[in-house]
């Protein structure tokens, strides 16, 4: 996909400030926030697009500065892209990404997990959908055992031979060096 970059540069009135969970402030062009349905709704509700409205910093308590930096990189790149339209949500062998996206998402799975949660929280459909498709493609062609490793899923419940008490439940490990995040309400029990 290609896009033309206009020559106009953002003015201070067209910015809002967001604050990450670790207290770092980011100045965001309102144009960029259009890609995030969460931010766009917030701006619309508080009339931040009006020049005479005082723009208080928006706290994003669930997003770290590193995640915000990565998100802004995405928003900047897609600044002049047409509005995202969801096409085929099913598996496709012919799906390709532009080189920039491949490089951008050439990150470890655990970082991808955090970015997906951030994209879900901020409701950035293009990023969310892209990560979902890349994650699905990382599973392609793997056996159940290999998938277990990639997704860090433990084996089913086994009872202790002496006490009969379950030793472990299958779940993704929380001891894998992940930073603690709670971007959205706790995942419902599956």
């Amino acid at each position: 996909m290609s896009c033309e970059e206009p020559t106009t540069s953002p003015t201070p009135e067209n910015n809002i400030t967001v604050v990450s969970s670790d207290g770092k402030e980011f100045l965001l062009d309102l144009k960029l926030t259009e890609q995030s349905e969460t931010l766009a709704r917030l701006i619309s509700n508080f009339e931040y697009d009006r020049t005479d409205v005082k723009k208080d910093p928006v706290p994003l308590g669930n997003i770290t500065s590193a995640q915000m930096q990565k998100i802004i990189e995405w928003l900047q790149h897609h600044r002049y892209y047409p509005k995202w339209e969801q096409n085929d949500i099913h598996y496709s062998t012919s799906f390709t990404f532009e080189t920039w996206v491949e490089e951008y998402l050439n990150i470890p799975n655990n970082e991808m997990f955090e970015l997906l949660n951030a994209a879900n929280y901020l409701n950035i459909p293009r990023l969310f959908s892209t990560i979902c498709r890349i994650m699905a493609s990382r599973i392609t062609g793997k056996s159940a055992e290999q998938i277990r490793t990639v997704l860090n899923i433990k084996t089913d419940v086994k009872n202790d031979v002496y006490t009969g008490i379950p030793i472990q439940e299958d779940s993704s490990s929380s001891e894998d060096g992940m930073s603690e995040i709670s971007l959205s309400p706790s995942p419902p029990p599956i």
Partner: peptide, 16 residues
């Protein structure tokens, strides 16, 4: 972003 083991804890994601 955080460092750590390269696994994707799928089951910790919200159901959607």
């Amino acid at each position: 972003m955080s460092n750590g083991v390269r696994s994707f804890p799928l089951l910790r994601l919200p159901i959607d």
